[in-house]
């Protein structure tokens, strides 16, 4: 995939109108403010942004990375024609098995039921987005040429199967896993996928604060322009090499204590899990 293609995918995926369900999630911000952690609006939002982004990066990015690896590996092998038709199915089954294992680990590590619920609904939405929004239109008159069609088929087949597993509740379809799957299937490089995932987390927190009326849309834009970028960059630098340790290609002496996912913000966890107890609320998480 050349740079233009990748840039175009980035543009599509960063669209705030994308039906990913993130507009109903505040990732604990609404509850945080309700519990009296608001000092002044702008500084509170920046503070929450830093703590929430730091915690999310440390717990979710290893899963984005590993899910991306699984799909990327299958995609390159298919592209290079390195797989016989008979083996294709076997490779795909192995990929699905790995993804389900990642999904299961994320599920058992996400012990806050509100976050678990939000993560699942957004993950499923991403899979639907791929099958309904990124597949080729069926009317062949719209597009000409069949280039990249096979590869497309291999990926859409994988995602279709993964979606079916989620529907049958054989897997959970958590957001970080589905994000890694989706971006790898679309051919987005890992580092860009990680960057965009953290950026979108930060941006959806800012839109939540606008919806909560704690900040105006211009101030939110200002923060996006000047504050979010260094925050995302520093969290990416800190967490981009983290792994789950589940995949075979992890280092032999993988030290989970140093390189594995972890919960780094117990306060955020408690407040987010109290979300449903709010007397009135506008978000689902």
């Amino acid at each position: 995939m050349d740079d233009d293609d990748e840039t175009y995918i980035l543009l599509l995926l960063s669209d705030s109108n994308l039906p990913t369900g993130s507009f109903v999630a505040s990732s604990g911000l609404e509850s945080y403010i309700k519990h009296g952690f608001m000092t002044s609006p702008t500084s509170t939002i920046v503070t929450f942004l830093q703590d929430s982004l730091g915690a999310y990066a440390r717990s979710a990015l290893p899963f984005v990375t590993d899910a991306h690896h699984v799909v990327e590996r299958l995609r390159t092998r298919e592209k290079d024609g390195g797989i016989e038709t008979g083996d294709m199915r076997e490779c795909q089954d192995k990929a699905l098995e790995d993804l389900a294992a990642l999904d299961d680990l994320y599920d058992t590590m996400t012990l806050n039921h509100v976050a678990r619920r939000a993560s699942k609904s957004q993950g499923v939405a991403l899979l639907t987005l791929y099958s309904k929004g990124f597949s080729r239109p069926s009317s062949s008159s719209v597009i000409s040429g069949a280039e990249g069609c096979d590869q497309n088929r291999c990926m859409s087949d994988l995602l279709e199967k993964f979606k079916l597993m989620a529907r049958k509740e054989d897997t959970q379809a958590h957001l970080p896993i589905c994000w890694g799957v989706l971006t790898a299937a679309l051919g987005l490089a890992l580092e860009r996928s990680q960057y965009l995932h953290l950026f979108l987390h930060a941006r959806s927190l800012l839109s939540a604060s606008v919806r909560l009326n704690d900040m105006g849309p211009y101030s939110a834009q200002q923060l996006l322009m000047h504050v979010v970028r260094p925050l995302v960059a520093s969290q990416l630098a800190r967490c981009k090499d983290l792994r789950t340790g589940l995949l075979e290609d992890s280092e032999v002496d993988f030290d989970e204590k140093i390189l594995g996912p972890a919960n780094t913000w117990p306060l955020g966890e408690i407040l987010a899990a109290r979300h449903d107890l709010q007397h009135s609320r506008i978000f689902n998480s």
């Binding site: 503070t47 830093q50 730091g54 440390r58 800190r238 594995g260 996912p261 972890a262 919960n263 117990p266």
Partner: peptide, 24 residues
Amino acid sequence: KRIAKDIMLLDDQQPDPIAKILSR
């Protein structure tokens, strides 16, 4: 079957030269 895994990590994140914002 693993049913729960809680990992709590509390450490001071090293101030990052990239982040111009005061680290927490």
